[in-house]
């Protein structure tokens, strides 16, 4: 499973403070710990507090790269912030640009810009595209699938390999009023999205969002992850430092026959 580690995000207090203080140690410690825990990519999100988001993105990228070579997932809905990060990022081992909607009221060509930037970042660069458009985040299955179809089709038109494309059907917090139908809607949408191309695009979710504001957050995250893996989820933005969650990843992959069982399968997963 392609695990994108979520913790280097300015929405977290410690990271926000580290950005304000230019404290490299906090960021580098998170980068190392998340890498050791099995992260395939490290998400890098400047959050909302930074005055100069482009400079902050560059500072975070450089700070992380001083301590580890784990590929990065530059996370911003502003193309200029992504572009700033790309200027200093090492893309040799791959990079993901996270994330773009199909289009925005203010920018009809935003997906094109992300694809162009990924193409310039080398053959291993991917993008995460949200099933979201100028009308906002859809609540139903059909609109999610329709937007995903337009994203896949646009990528194909631009010669972008579907295996470099991650579709994120957008999880909403289950605690939000009337949002409890969303998890099943997302699973149903995923069943259809994976049929849109052959080979299928990757499917990813920002997992922790589902439990935002709820009690038993880790439990909710774990159970939904296992359910989503059975519907084709092969990537997720997660808290890789949550050991119980990582055990669920290993077990789900084993039960889906993606990893060969052994009595030490949890240990084996960490070694791979």
């Amino acid at each position: 499973m392609i695990l994108i580690a979520e913790r280097i995000n300015g929405m977290f207090k410690d990271v926000k403070q580290a950005i304000a203080d230019k404290d490299k140690k906090v960021i580098q410690d998170l980068a190392k710990r998340q890498t050791q825990a099995g992260a395939s990519y490290l998400d890098v999100n400047v959050g909302t507090a930074a005055a100069d988001q482009q400079a902050t993105m560059q500072w975070l990228v450089e700070t992380i790269q001083q301590t580890c070579a784990t590929p990065l997932c530059l996370d911003s809905q502003k193309p200029d912030v992504i572009a700033a990060g790309l200027k200093v990022a090492n893309t040799e081992n791959g990079i993901i640009l996270n994330s773009t909607p199909l289009n925005k009221k203010t920018d009809d060509k935003i997906l094109d810009r992300y694809i162009d930037m990924a193409n310039q970042a080398g053959p291993k660069a991917g993008i995460i595209a949200l099933t979201m458009d100028k009308n906002g985040v859809p609540q139903d299955i059909d609109t999610r699938v329709a937007i995903a179809a337009e994203i896949v089709s646009k990528a194909a038109d631009m010669g972008f390999d579907p295996q470099r494309l991650f579709i994120d059907p957008i999880i909403l917090p289950v605690k939000v009023p009337d949002a409890q139908a969303q998890p099943t809607n997302i699973l149903a949408a995923m069943d259809q999205i994976k049929l849109l191309a052959d080979p299928a695009p990757h499917m990813t979710v920002g997992l922790s969002n589902i439990s935002q504001g709820a009690t038993e957050r880790s439990l909710i995250n774990r159970i939904f992850l296992a359910m989503a893996v059975s519907h084709g989820l092969d990537s997720a933005i997660v808290d890789v430092l949550d050991e119980e969650l990582m055990n669920v990843v290993a077990t789900s992959e084993m039960l889906m026959n993606k990893q060969i069982y052994s009595d030490s399968f949890l240990k084996a997963y960490k070694g791979t």
């Binding site: 060969i260 069982y261 052994s262 030490s264 240990k267 084996a268 070694g271």
Partner: peptide, 14 residues
């Protein structure tokens, strides 16, 4: 037995 094969590799690697 593929499962045991993997397990032996993990054991010696440990």
């Amino acid at each position: 037995d593929i499962n045991i094969a993997k397990q032996v590799n993990i054991l010696v690697s440990d």
